[in-house]
Computed example of a mutant assay.
Amino acid sequence: MSIELAPEQVRGFAPDIEQFPLGSRVFLTHLTGKPEAMQVEAALRIREMGYIAVPHLGARNFKTEQDFIDLVRAHSRNGITEALFLGGNPALFPGPMSESAQLLAHPVLRDSTIRTAFVAGYPEGHPNITDAALADALWRKLEICDARSIDARVVSQFAFDGAAMGAWARGLHEEFPGLPVHVGLAGVTSLAKLIKFAMMCGVGASVAALKRSASGIFNVISDRNPADVIEAIVSSYPEPKGPLHLHFFPFGGWEKTLAWYSEHQGARRPRINLR
């Protein structure tokens, strides 16, 4: 499994290695307005702890091309080997770049230490991009990685329809044999917070099903875990034909999510590659 943190959370990140083994991946967000030096410092700290730092690089968050170059070089000086390449969310952006493919094709990567590139996947589609356009964009990004001898992986936005997520992963493995796929899951948090983040992130297709589970005051105020989503993924795609991993967005805090997953894994180990 892997987990996602904001760079400012890393100073307090001290997981039990029994719950989160050394060598696991920690993704680090890249948000507009946040100092990029903070991400550099966080990635180095994660690496020194014995984990794999995977900083996000969002094209629309860079004010200039030089800002992107400087960030890649800073991570390379620290020996960071993996990154997630994104277009980014801002509809209005100051810089010259708008797509993750532009970042992947940039010459600065040739001399960088980054040899593994994650690109985004959307099990339920994208609210503003057609399925055909998403498929074409994925082809282009994988072609760029292949031409650059960069290992490519797909990591998805979180969702709540496990059957759809399993079908999506199966489709990717059929089209791209051997492609590692990381399915995104919301960590342990309240139902109200899950709905809030789902609406903010445009995860609309399965929000209705999520809301239906809000009947009764106990279900609204108590924490929700993704066990049902994981089980639905396993049922939908019981024998993965390629590497299949879990990636957690711990909206309720990384401690809750790691503790719950450790217990869940011990109680019933899913038929999924976990590392």
Results as ranks from 00 to 15, higher is better:
Ala159Met: 12
Leu71Lys: 11
His247Ile: 05
His173Gly: 07
Thr257Lys: 05
Ala91Gln: 13
Gly187Trp: 03
Ser156Asn: 06
Ala59Gly: 08
Leu134His: 04
Ala259Arg: 12
Pro180Gly: 02
Gly95Phe: 07
Leu134Cys: 08
Gly253Lys: 11
Pro238Ser: 07
Leu258Asp: 03
Lys256His: 15
Ser156Glu: 02
Glu99Tyr: 15
Pro270Trp: 11
Phe93Cys: 03
Leu179Gln: 06
Glu36Gly: 07
Ala147Gln: 14
Pro238Asn: 11
Tyr122Gly: 00
His264Val: 00
Tyr51Trp: 08
Pro90Glu: 07
Val234Phe: 03
Ala214Asp: 00
Ala14His: 15
Gln9Asn: 13
Leu5Met: 09
Leu138Ser: 01
Pro7Tyr: 04
Arg224Trp: 15
Val54Arg: 02
Arg153Ala: 11
Val220Arg: 14
Pro94Asp: 15
Asn225His: 13
Gly87Ile: 09
Ala259Thr: 13
Gly121Trp: 04
Gly216Ile: 09
Trp139Ser: 08
Ala83Asp: 03
Ser76Cys: 04
Leu22Trp: 00
Asn61Ser: 10
Pro90Asp: 11
Tyr122Pro: 03
Ala14Val: 11
Ile195Asn: 04
Trp139Thr: 10
Ala105Ile: 02
Ser149Leu: 07
Pro35Phe: 09
Leu104Pro: 05
Glu8Lys: 12
Asp228Glu: 13
Trp254Tyr: 15
Ser190Tyr: 01
Leu44Asn: 08
His173Phe: 08
Gln265Asn: 06
Ser236Pro: 10
Val72Pro: 01
Gly58Ile: 00
Arg47Cys: 00
Arg268Ser: 14
Ala227Ser: 14
Ala232Gln: 13
Glu8Tyr: 12
Val183Tyr: 02
Pro250Gln: 06
Lys141Phe: 01
Ala186Tyr: 00
Ala167Lys: 10
Ile46Cys: 01
Val72Trp: 02
His56Lys: 05
Gly33Leu: 07
Pro226Asn: 06
Met199Phe: 08
Met49His: 07
Asn89Ala: 14
Pro90Leu: 09
Asn225Gln: 13
Pro15Ala: 10
Ala117Glu: 01
Ala227Tyr: 02
Leu109Asn: 04
His106Trp: 08
Asp131Glu: 13
Met1Tyr: 13
Glu175Gln: 13
Arg140Glu: 13
Asp131Leu: 14
Ala6Trp: 01
Tyr51Asn: 02
Asn273Arg: 07
Gly171Arg: 10
Gly184Lys: 03
Gly178Glu: 07
Ala164Leu: 09
